[in-house]
Simulated assay, not measured.
Amino acid sequence: MSDTTRRSVLAGAAGITAATALAACGDDLDAPGTDNAAPPAAGTSGPAGGSSPSGKASSTAGNGAAAGIAAVADIPVGGGKIFAEQKVVVTQPTAGTIKAFSVTCTHQGCPVSKIEAGNIVCTCHNSKFKVADGSPAGGPATKPLTPATVKVENGRVVLG
């Protein structure tokens, strides 16, 4: 077999492998912006405005930047929301403090699927992570969820 033919075969195999891997990375979470959890209890929505992952207030009022993925008021205080399309879970551990984490569980890579009782839950093996900092709160996971960069602009949660 010539080098050109080997390269063609290897390149084709690599493309098939990549496509298969990407298809396997899909998840069964609902549409973007859904949290797959019971609605928050009355009075759990926080005020508009917020903070960066460090807990410090951020604002770029008037710049008309990104529309964001949700209003701060839509993220329940003491809970959060899962955004499947963006592969991020956004939490508001205390009023005005916004945090974000990867939806990928650190135990075996399943996507987290619900938020309950102050915990982000991966139902694959029942790992639980604290909404305040993503640290393990139960189950087989021993490493925290990977933090995501988030800020608040004009009362909206913006990734990046």
Rank of each mutant, 00 (worst) to 15 (best):
M1C: 01
S2Y: 00
S2I: 04
T5W: 04
R6Q: 08
R6H: 03
R7P: 00
R7L: 06
V9C: 00
L10W: 01
G12C: 01
A13F: 03
I16L: 10
T17G: 02
T17A: 14
A18E: 00
A18F: 02
A18I: 08
T20S: 07
L22Y: 01
L22D: 00
L22H: 01
A24S: 09
C25K: 13
C25L: 13
D27V: 01
D27Q: 07
D28E: 10
D28W: 07
L29V: 09
L29S: 08
A31G: 14
A31H: 11
P32F: 12
T34M: 10
A37W: 10
A38D: 15
P39F: 10
G43F: 11
T44S: 15
A48G: 12
A48N: 12
G49Q: 10
S51Y: 08
S52W: 05
G55S: 12
G62T: 10
G62N: 12
N63T: 14
G64N: 15
A65E: 09
A66V: 10
G68S: 09
I69V: 15
A70Y: 07
A71L: 11
A71I: 03
A71K: 15
A71V: 01
V72T: 15
D74K: 12
D74R: 10
P76G: 14
P76I: 13
V77W: 11
G78I: 11
G78S: 13
G78M: 13
G80C: 11
G80K: 11
G80L: 13
I82W: 11
K87W: 05
V89M: 07
V89E: 08
V90L: 12
T91A: 07
P93T: 06
T94Y: 00
T94V: 09
G96K: 12
G96E: 07
K99I: 00
A100Y: 04
S102Y: 04
V103P: 03
T104M: 09
C105H: 11
H107S: 04
Q108T: 03
G109A: 05
C110G: 06
A117S: 10
N119R: 13
H125C: 03
N126L: 04
K128I: 01
F129G: 05
F129D: 06
V131R: 02
D133N: 11
S135Y: 04
G138N: 06
P140L: 13
P140Y: 11
A141P: 03
K143A: 15
P144M: 02
T146G: 05
T146M: 05
P147I: 09
T149M: 07
T149Q: 14
V150K: 06
V150Q: 05
E153G: 04
R156Y: 00
R156N: 05
R156I: 00
V157Q: 04
V157A: 03
G160Y: 02
